[in-house]
Amino acid sequence: MTKKRYGMAIDLRRCVGCEACTVACKQENHTPPGVAYAKVIKEEVGEFPHVRRHFLPVLCNHCENPPCVPVCPVGATWKREEDGIVVIDYDICIGCRYCMTACPYGARYFDFGDNYNQPQNEFEGRSSPEYGEDRPRQAGSSPIGNVRKCTFCLHRVARGEQPACVLTCMPRARIFGDLNDPESEIARLVAERRGFRLKEELGTEPNVFYLE
């Protein structure tokens, strides 16, 4: 048992829709406008007075059979052997956006080079820690012009920390861990509580589980 299979379980009974994960993710990864690796789908069900709000936090599912990976014409995106995280090599990606059309979850984003501030402020210009690489955000150079996606905060996980969205989640609705380790909290939760995954009919085998 050497290979890891990182996954996430999201407890929908605990999620309050505060979007702290969205904010934490943007802050951690310095993502530009129009790029949000973690976001929360909000849905209103029923009519007054029987109204409920449902929340569904979504992120990259790091599928076992990711449909976005085989379509890449230059092999710039792949699923890592050692831990199952789907990554992108910004130096190889040519920005054709084929993978974005192939992802059934809309989890991939294109960096058009937009900034929140004109000219960009110091925070926006700083390099994102993604993949542990140092890439100051400058016009014309990667990751601008590349497809970007959630990395399960690879750089934090490598240091033994939790992904930013997991750490920040106030009601502890997000549990991150190794699904291959039967002793881990996530493996136990997924086994004990009936979890579902998004669009299971497509055979993508997502590694993000939703607990009801």
């Binding site: 085989p70 190889i92 920005g95 960096d111 990667s142």
Partner: peptide, 17 residues
């Protein structure tokens, strides 16, 4: 997105695409 890399399709092969 990266026009200058168009020629890399000849060196970075991906037979599944």
């Amino acid at each position: 997105g990266h026009m200058e890399r168009f020629w890399t399709v000849f060196i970075n092969r991906s037979s599944t695409s």
